[in-house]
Amino acid sequence: MTPRKPYPSDLSDARWKLVEPVLAAWRSERRARALDIGRPPEHDLRDILNAILYVDRTGIPWRYLPHEYPPWATVYGYFAKWQRDGVFEQLSGLLRRRVRAADGRATEPTACVIDAQSVKTAPTVPAASQGVDAAKKIVGRKRSIITDTLGLLLAVLVPAASMQYSIAGTQLLNRAAAAHPTISKAWVDGGYRQHLIEHAATLGIDMEIVHRDPTTKGFALLPRRWCVERTFGWLMLHRRLVRDYEALPARSEAMIHLAMIDNMTRRLTNESTPTWRGT
């Protein structure tokens, strides 16, 4: 059978080697618990992940997957299982540590940056998981993220857009402090309130608000905060994240982890990231 021509979103051999051990271990563990262990897997894990990355990168509905990939229902089934089993978070964490080591940093961060982005939702998203961000005039969801100083994702939370920045920040900070006890410094913008700073102090984290100069007009690069703003820029290269299409907030978080997995595998293999702009 003639191999198909790869899409720009497909994993190269070098990128596949970075993620294959985690997915292979997941399949082996699942097969060990299965009753019909004699039946070989029908679909290749690399093809499955390529199809999921294609959806994340292009923004198409699952049913519109090209026929060269496995059936869309199978692909979505794997996506849902990997999300529930924490595979995307595991991959994101492993790759983040490798990127930090390659950059000459300690594998665990000592500082972080917190920010949030409100995005509109698709008509298929349940109304119960949406809200109104009055300041941004957006009906949808809010993506709250914590990154290290390289802009690499440490934690993500996708609540309704109506959730206050500080409430989402508190939940994120609790996650980050539990997973990364080495963190002792954090930066946020002026939208976060004093009680978050006080809560950070109880976790042993010195939180600093980076204020924007009120006399400055137009775009201004803010110290420390620019790295998390750049992370949002990386995410926006994935069309599935331009709007929130996922019925479940947990699936939205998985799509964000996928975008970062895509980014970090390219970074580790020195491969360029093709954009959709102008195509």
Rank of each mutant, 00 (worst) to 15 (best):
I138Y: 08
I138N: 06
V139E: 03
G140Y: 02
G140V: 12
G140W: 06
G140Q: 08
K142C: 06
K142A: 12
R143P: 05
R143G: 00
R143L: 05
R143A: 05
S144R: 03
I145W: 02
I145E: 03
I145K: 11
I145C: 06
I146P: 10
I146L: 13
I146V: 15
I146E: 02
T147Q: 07
D148Q: 12
D148T: 06
D148L: 04
T149H: 01
T149S: 06
T149W: 05
T149C: 12
T149I: 11
L150K: 07
L150S: 13
G151I: 07
G151E: 00
L152R: 10
L153S: 08
L153E: 01
L153Q: 00
L153P: 04
L153I: 09
L153R: 07
L154V: 05
V156K: 03
V156Y: 01
L157P: 00
L157G: 00
L157H: 12
L157D: 13
L157F: 10
V158N: 10
P159L: 10
A161D: 08
A161Q: 10
A161E: 11
A161K: 09
A161M: 11
S162F: 07
M163F: 04
Q164S: 14
Q164W: 10
Q164I: 06
Y165K: 15
Y165S: 15
S166G: 12
S166L: 09
S166W: 01
A168Y: 03
A168S: 14
A168W: 07
A168M: 04
A168N: 06
A168L: 03
G169F: 08
G169V: 13
T170G: 12
T170Y: 03
Q171M: 13
Q171A: 14
Q171N: 07
Q171R: 14
L172Y: 03
L172G: 07
L172P: 04
L173F: 07
L173W: 04
N174Y: 06
N174Q: 14
N174A: 15
R175M: 15
A176G: 10
A177T: 08
A177M: 02
A177N: 09
A177Y: 00
A177P: 04
A177E: 01
A178V: 05
A179E: 13
A179C: 02
A179S: 15
H180D: 00
H180G: 00
H180Q: 07
H180M: 01
H180S: 07
P181D: 06
P181V: 09
T182A: 12
I183N: 03
I183K: 08
S184A: 13
S184W: 04
S184N: 07
S184Q: 11
K185G: 01
A186V: 02
A186R: 11
W187F: 15
W187P: 13
V188F: 12
D189F: 05
G190H: 00
G191P: 02
G191E: 13
Y192E: 03
Y192M: 03
Y192W: 06
R193H: 09
R193W: 01
Q194H: 15
H195Q: 15
L196W: 08
L196V: 00
L196N: 01
L196H: 00
E198N: 15
E198R: 15
H199T: 11
A200S: 10
A200V: 14
